[in-house]
Every structure is written in C-alpha cells, then in structure tokens.
C-alpha cells in the first residue's frame, strides 16, 4: 500500500479546537472524493477522539494533541490521534459503550463506540502516565475510482 499524501497537525487541548481538528481532517480526506455521509463519519470519529484527549487525557490541563492523517492508494485514510496525557489503565473497559470515568459531566461514554461504528478499524495504544494513540482506518467506498486529484495547472492568458 502506497502513501499518496500526508498531513500533520498539532493543536492545544482546548475545546474550541475540536471543530478545527475535525474540519481539517475532513477537508484533507475530501481528496478521496467521499460522500457527505462518509465525510460526516470521519468528522464524528475525529471529534470523539480529540474530545477524549481534551476531557480525559489532559483533564484540566492544556497539553498537545498530535494528529496525523495519511491517504493510501487503495482509497483509504488512516488517522492517528495521539496525546501525552494520563493514559488509559484498562482499554477494554474504556471501549465498552456507556462506560465513563466522568458521569457528573454528562459524558455519554459513547466515544469509542461511535469511532468503531463510523470507521472500518480502530486500534488503541496506551501507557498509563505517558499517553494514548488512537488509530482510525477507513476506506472510502463511494466513488472509489477517483483517487488523489492532481492540482490543476493554471492556464496562462494569452
């Protein structure tokens, strides 16, 4: 599988950046010519992962969130969202629907369930005290023929 394009984005763990992060990844993924539904799925999955970094990994502190997305020649996108926050003790339990460590703040505990439902594959790596990486993979099935559109060359006016 060949990488066709890559983006890297580092943001501070401020909730105002949630919209920016999901918007940036969605715009990057638009090179794969996804449907509106597929774009929404990517946006939602990224929003969940970034929110987890802000709410759980860094809690009341401000840390950095590292987002890396790669587009491959099989029309798929792989998005890695990494933090250097508190880490997860029990990944299996954290991924159970409706499990939340913070019920008082009206969290639904659905973050990982939504990430799983809206992507093809999710992997979570974590070390307590060091941080967490979430890897989201999604194949764009809709208009699978167009891969990376080449930028149009500007025509000179005669």
């Amino acid at each position: 599988m060949k990488t066709l394009n890559e983006m890297k984005l580092t943001i501070e763990s401020r909730s105002v950046n949630e919209g920016f992060a999901r918007g940036a990844v969605a715009l990057f993924s638009s090179q794969l010519d996804p449907t509106v539904e597929e774009i929404t799925e990517i946006k939602t999955a990224v929003s969940e992962a970034v929110t987890n970094c802000i709410v759980h990994a860094y809690k009341q502190t401000i840390g950095l969130i590292y987002i890396n997305a790669k587009i491959f020649d099989d029309n798929s996108i792989r998005i890695k969202i990494r933090d250097k926050g508190c880490g997860i003790d029990n990944i299996k339990r954290a991924m159970e629907p409706s499990f939340t460590t913070d019920p008082a703040s009206e969290r639904a505990g659905l973050g990982f369930a939504i990430m799983s439902a809206f992507t093809d594959n999710i992997k979570v790596y974590s070390s307590p005290g060091k941080g967490t990486s979430v890897l989201l993979c999604k194949k764009i099935k809709s208009k699978g023929q167009k891969i990376c559109r080449q930028p149009e060359t500007s025509k000179e006016t005669s």
């Binding site: 939602t44 969290r107 639904a108």
Partner: peptide, 13 residues
C-alpha cells in the same frame, strides 16, 4: 449541522 456524542450527553442530562 453536526453532532457527536456530546449531543447525546446533552440529551441524557
């Protein structure tokens, strides 16, 4: 135009 699981938390609350 967009909603993630925070919207579900909002409704539950």
């Amino acid at each position: 135009t967009f909603m993630d699981s925070s919207g579900v938390g909002l409704v539950m609350g």
